[in-house]
Design a binder for these strands. Structure first.
Length: 424
RNA sequence: GGAGAGAUGCCGGAGUGGUCGAACGGACUGGUCUUGAAAACCAGCGUACCGCAAGGUACCGGGGGUUCGAAUCCCCCUCUCUCCGCCA
């Protein structure tokens, strides 16, 4: 959520930013509602002040008739206050829903453009492999080596679920281990979080768990839902906290499972385990001061790159265009790994993403910090990035490491945990 | 799941309907004193919102209610502790 004061002080810039991002918002309406809100609060405060004052006189009033008058006046004021509050409540609801539509401001260097065609490739690392045979895609490779069972997944839980088998199981654990080691070495405190959270927490973070358009699985007869990303549980962890500036940046990493209904996402690219309803992820999350977030953003991307460099998988870093940014992101880098079995002759496929949300998320969550010198608190900045999303990483590994003889070589860094150097 | 107790400011802890945003103690910050430190003494010490400001309003786990007036009374919820049951 963007600061109300900021929106009203920078109407033109905010409106331009909304256009760049392809979002329709009535900024003028927000300005008008805010003005009315101020009026209502002022009159409400005054009414409460009068009410308090006249109530305080009652115990000292000895004349019973005057006392009754004061009580009657109190009753009147009470009604006026209730009317004022009702109007304010309605107005604030309207204001909030309008305000929630306004996306975050955008980093000045982010490419401006309507869709993912406008995304800018920042750099490409690693050589795209050439095969002197027809490379298989990850579904064919998995079939050949008995690495995933999609049929059993469908039978038991439905389309979009899968069983990992044999080396795939070991590789999942290996990828998690590698990711945890790297993020711990980079100073992130490791966590394992609940995979369910109260609906109130989801809502607080901006997900709507039970609506018709929801991407969230919710558990019947409870107020719990399965988390779509550890952002939910981590956001819940920091919600309403007032942190010490000296302790920033706070960097946490978390292993969690992600559950997504992916409603309406059936298409060509959904075969196999590229888009699934459940996957395991190691996620980085940081709470920083305003002047630290850009640097931490670069740090998170560097860790993501280091991970894929360690796996020796070619990738490119994308600076996401304005029209393709989610609401909270100020700037977002995606890592796209080369997937030789994807499309016609290979394509890059998204494997991680790293967002700097500046104060947009933190404002809604009331994640603040204070400095000893200054009075009051400031809104912190939050960032998140994927260390590893297991299923996507598996696809990239299998497809890049396939050999002419049909075997799949295990990346060297994973061998200690997998216990072998080759599948098949 | 059952029975009981509880939730107050950074911490401890008073406060059971009316000058309570909240006694008192500790911690912390500044000052006096001291060669320096300690002790002692004095002062300060929450968050948010509205307002140019003066100032005002709200907040005693969360939400609702009673009342002219609620930290205090009533209802619902959440959490913590003790005991019982169940259990990887």
């Amino acid at each position: 959520m963007l600061d109300l004061q900021y929106i009203c002080d920078h109407v033109d810039e905010v409106a331009r930013n909304c256009r760049n991002r392809g979002v329709q918002v009535d900024i003028e309406k927000i300005v008008t509602l805010r003005q009315r809100r101020g009026e209502l609060i002022t009159t409400g405060d005054k009414l409460r002040h009068d009410h308090k004052e006249s109530s305080a006189k009652i115990p000292q009033e000895s004349d019973p008739r005057k006392k009754q008058e004061l009580i009657a006046r109190g009753k009147d004021l009470k009604q006026e206050i209730a009317a004022n509050e009702a109007e304010l409540r309605d107005l604030e609801a309207e204001l909030r829903s309008e305000q929630a539509l306004v996306p975050n401001m955008t980093h000045p260097d982010a490419p401006v453009g309507g869709d993912d065609d406008a995304n800018r490739v920042v750099r490409q690392v690693g050589d795209i492999p050439t095969f002197d045979f027809q490379p298989l895609n990850h579904v064919e490779l998995a079939e050949k080596h008995d690495l995933i069972d999609l049929e059993a997944g469908s039978r038991v839980a439905g389309h979009g679920f899968y069983y990992l088998k044999n080396e795939a199981v070991l590789m999942e654990m290996a990828l998690i281990q590698l990711a945890l080691q790297k993020v711990a070495a980079a100073g992130f405190t490791l966590h394992a979080t609940p995979d369910l959270a109260r609906d109130s927490v989801l809502e607080g973070i901006g997900f709507s768990p039970r609506g018709p358009e929801t991407q969230i699985y919710s558990v019947e007869q409870t107020d719990l839902s399965l988390v779509a990303t550890a952002e939910i549980t981590l956001g819940g962890m920091f919600k309403d906290q007032i942190l010490e500036a000296a302790n920033l940046p706070i960097k946490v990493a978390v292993i969690s499972h992600c559950f997504r209904t992916e409603a309406g996402a059936h298409g060509a690219a959904t075969r196999g385990i590229y888009r699934v309803h459940q996957f395991t992820k190691v996620e980085m999350f940081a709470v920083t001061g305003p002047d630290q977030s850009d640097a931490v953003h670069e740090e998170i991307v560097a860790i993501e790159e280091d991970f894929f460099q360690a796996l020796k998988i070619p990738y490119q870093v994308i600076d996401t265009a304005t029209g393709d940014l989610g609401g909270p992101a100020y700037r977002k880098y995606d890592l796209e790994a080369w997937m030789p079995g994807r499309g016609e002759g290979g394509e890059f496929g998204e494997v991680t993403s790293a967002s700097n949300c500046t104060d947009y998320q933190a404002r809604r969550l009331a994640i603040r910090f204070k400095t000893p010198e200054a009075k009051g608190t400031q809104i912190a900045h939050t960032l998140n990035g994927t260390a590893v999303a297991v299923t996507r990483a598996l696809i990239a590994i299998w497809e890049n490491y396939q050999q002419a003889d049909g075997t799949i070589v295990i990346p060297e860094v994973l061998r200690p945990w997998v216990g072998k150097d080759r599948i098949g």
